[in-house]
């Protein structure tokens, strides 16, 4: 079964490697011609993750948790169910665990073996999350990696790295910035960034 593709494959007549754009087009043609794939269905998948399913969903979850203590308690106890209350569920969201960042604990999420990520609340992973350097290093020197990414974590704050090696997906509930306590959910949502929900950024007051 372990028949890896030959690394010398994917060469054109001049011996240059054929880029993935050209090979993607070729594979789509081969499958479409035989009726195995419908390009319209492909368009729908792409549009879904370009527009409908993205980090705005996660921002709504966090804004609600910040303004509704009972919701926050449910979110931390049963993440998947509490997220579904807002209508967010689907692939890569079978079991979502939410962990809270506080004055004393900073959680940061990774998937070292691939790039598993909670799609229903954050959409598809950003480039940095898929970067082999992030995957390799954040489980070895997280404080240093976070600092390189512009996220300073105090020496008195304990870091917990969450490596998503199975089907559990992790979402970070970031700290609400001081001075935003009186804001409504609608006012809070635009402040909440994707990177903070993975644990590589803090959220600033406006």
């Amino acid at each position: 079964m372990s028949t890896a593709l030959n690394p010398d494959e994917h060469l054109d007549g001049s011996g240059n490697r054929i880029g993935p754009a050209l090979r993607t087009e070729a594979l789509e043609q081969l499958l479409t011609e035989r009726g195995l794939v419908d390009p319209n269905v492909m368009d729908k998948f792409i549009a879904t993750y370009e527009t409908a399913v993205g980090p705005l969903n996660g921002a709504k979850v966090v804004a609600k948790a910040w303004t509704d203590p009972e919701y926050k308690a449910r979110l931390l106890a049963e993440g998947t169910a509490a997220i579904k209350e807002l209508g967010f569920a689907g692939p890569q969201g079978e079991h979502i665990v939410v962990v809270e960042n506080t004055d004393s604990v900073h959680n940061v999420v990774v998937c070292t073996l691939c790039s598993c990520y909670p799609w229903p609340v954050l959409g598809l992973p950003p480039a940095w999350y898929k970067d082999p350097a992030y995957r390799a290093r954040v489980v070895r020197e997280p404080r240093k990696v976070l600092s390189e990414m512009g996220c300073e974590v105090g020496d008195d704050v304990e870091i917990i790295v969450r490596d998503s090696s199975a089907e559990v997906r992790w979402l970070v509930l970031p700290q609400q910035p001081a001075g935003t306590e009186g804001l409504s959910e609608e006012e809070l949502i635009p402040l909440i960034t994707r990177d903070a929900l993975v644990g590589v950024a803090h959220i600033s007051a406006p």
Binding site: T112, W128, A136, R137, E148, D195
Partner: peptide, 17 residues
Amino acid sequence: DIGGATGWGQVSPPPPQ
């Protein structure tokens, strides 16, 4: 299986969302 492997470079600050 690259978790914990050394030899990888810096991680850049993420661009604006």
